[in-house]
Design a protein around this nucleic acid. Sequence first.
DNA 1: TAGAATACGGAATTCCGTTTCCGGTTGTCA
DNA 2: TGACAACCGGAAACGGAATTCCGTATTCTA
Lengths: 190, 190
Amino acid sequence: MDAPTSIPTSTTRSLRTDARRNRERILAAARDAFAAAGRDVQMPDIARAAGVGVGTLYRHFPAKEDLVLALVRDKVQATIDVMREALTHDDPWEAIEWLVRENAAKMAQSRGLRDAMSVIDLGDENPWNTDEAHRHAAAVLDRARDASAIRDDLTVDDWQALMCGLSAAIAAGADPARQADFVLAAVRRR
Amino acid sequence: MDAPTSIPTSTTRSLRTDARRNRERILAAARDAFAAAGRDVQMPDIARAAGVGVGTLYRHFPAKEDLVLALVRDKVQATIDVMREALTHDDPWEAIEWLVRENAAKMAQSRGLRDAMSVIDLGDENPWNTDEAHRHAAAVLDRARDASAIRDDLTVDDWQALMCGLSAAIAAGADPARQADFVLAAVRRR
DNA sequence: TAGAATACGGAATTCCGTTTCCGGTTGTCA
DNA sequence: TGACAACCGGAAACGGAATTCCGTATTCTA
């Protein structure tokens, strides 16, 4: 458990090339598998899909939970990117609209994302409670609030809870576009 | 509960009194257990809490799924009762308000209800798709719609999806009252 | 290119919740 | 009250998914 040969970076201990490649493959296969079947996918199946043995899978991710976490982090990052893109819209309200609809559409596509959302335990430490995620949500929200586009008591926590609900409704089979409308109606300033 | 001795109904084959008692105990224990820990509770734990052996538990409910279903049916019934009570409110919008807040409060109490809601697979046959449940929801909604209190394109399916989302958000730790507000804002006529 | 370090595959094992089984108990009815 | 059926308890078998283990293969460094 330490530095044997050459100067490994504290965070990125240089992996052997095949190891790095396999890690990527596993992540990709897991992403697909989770998108299709949610948390229920089995480790051996993921390994097979990645063209890798279970042993290898477990060397990279000591427990299933670790793999899930890695994927959730990806999803969080993707969500952050969407928020960042929302900020490029000139109109603050349009940004919100686009953001909600985009999220709804993405949720409809990936069961993995929905499962990822359900990891949320507001107020607890969870992958969504990143400073970065919080900051971006605040940016979109603040701008809309300043423009009097949304109710002015809407917090980032409220937002996360709404996204969580949105995800659940969509998971239940509701029409994503329609649910997005409801969320928009809920946050819009009356 | 009812007539103990004799007169077995076609549906209710008369159980021996101890059997009936145990059945009730199991249901009660399961309700508590699910409320506290969701679907993850284990059958032996439920049996223990009910002061009963696993064998007995399984005689009454051949599989865990059957037990869950029995509880879900209870929840559906409870929800129907709430809707019925909502109808006693004179003002159609007040009825909706009360209904949403009441549901939110109930959901906050029981994680079991949340899991029950998540059984939903809209459009599929599920415990929530009862004629009775549908009819009651329609009654409350129609009345509010006729009074122009809610958006006039709101369907019973929409309503179920919203309740589902509400439940998820609350389960994630959101403030029930606040989430109820959002739902109300979403359905209210602008 | 040799040798050491690192990584690999996948059968075997562990783990754990569900379900079965059956000797013993209790309620019911004549 | 006695006889019988219905019911009970809980140890143990089962099933299936997660995880470990270790002999072999690949990569890296000199």
